[in-house]
């Protein structure tokens, strides 16, 4: 009878974490920035059909980096969670916090129990109402670690450098145009390439909108915003 291999739990977790981190660092990055009327999400994504940023519910958006099939599964699970909850209680009872917790549980379970961890990081963003409440940005890592972020968040390939850049350059009360330009500059920090509207996927949670706050900004509409005050 062959003896099963012994691997120490510590080593196993280390290996899994390294594997997941490697997968994520190969991908392109996403930034989220609070601006005057809500939250802006900017992703480097040349595809116009495969989205990294999407709508979950009235005030909640989702963004994922890493392996597409994995974060797509998580996204659909989130839409299901939100729609079920909203249907059985009321639309106002669907919160980003509950959803972020669910993602954290799911990713944590997968990380400890499955052979292969998910190579993803996700953002759950909830825009506040106009009553002065705060926006909420949650970042959930491949192992279920959950962090709540203020003002801005970054994830993906070179997230650390992008975060450093945003820390130095972010200020409160940005207009949409300023926030977008800052976000794009942040994404370019780690590369020499100039990003144009065709390399970007941009969406906002706009609190001035009725009910469903999520809105994509198509490339045609991006160009004037990017060139704005140059």
């Amino acid at each position: 009878m062959p003896l099963p291999y012994y691997v120490s739990p510590e080593q196993m977790m280390k290996d899994k974490a390294e594997y997941a981190r490697k997968g994520i660092s190969r991908g392109k990055s996403i930034v989220a920035l609070e601006y005057r009327d809500g939250v802006l999400l900017v992703a480097e994504n040349p595809s116009t059909l495969l989205h990294k940023i999407s709508e979950i519910y009235d005030r909640i958006a989702f963004a994922g980096v890493g392996k597409y099939n994995e974060f797509e599964n998580l996204r659909v699970a989130g839409v299901r969670h939100a729609d079920l909850k909203g249907y059985s209680y009321s639309r106002g009872d669907v919160t980003g916090k509950a959803l972020a917790n669910a993602y954290s549980q799911a990713l944590g379970n997968i990380f400890t129990q499955d052979i292969k961890p998910f190579e993803v990081e996700v953002l759950v963003v909830e825009v506040a109402d106009t009553n002065g409440a705060k926006n909420e940005i949650f970042r959930i890592l491949y192992d279920g670690t959950i962090e709540d972020e203020r003002n801005y968040a970054a994830m993906g390939g070179q997230a650390d450098e992008i975060r450093r850049f945003l820390k130095d350059n972010y200020r409160e009360g940005l207009s949409l145009e300023e926030a977008l330009q800052l976000g794009v500059r942040a994404l370019m920090v780690t590369q020499n390439k100039q990003l144009t509207e065709h390399d970007l996927e941009v969406a906002v949670l706009d609190r001035t909108k009725e009910r469903r706050k999520f809105r994509r900004i198509p490339p045609e509409a991006l160009r004037p915003l990017l060139e704005g005050s140059k």
């Binding site: 989205h51 999407s54 709508e55 979950i56 659909v76 839409v79 299901r80 729609d83 909203g86 249907y87």
Partner: peptide, 16 residues
């Protein structure tokens, strides 16, 4: 009617 509204919105979000 409420179920139908949710059905349409759900489809739109999942399928894009």
């Amino acid at each position: 009617a409420r179920l139908f509204q949710t059905e349409l919105e759900h489809y739109e979000k999942v399928e894009g």
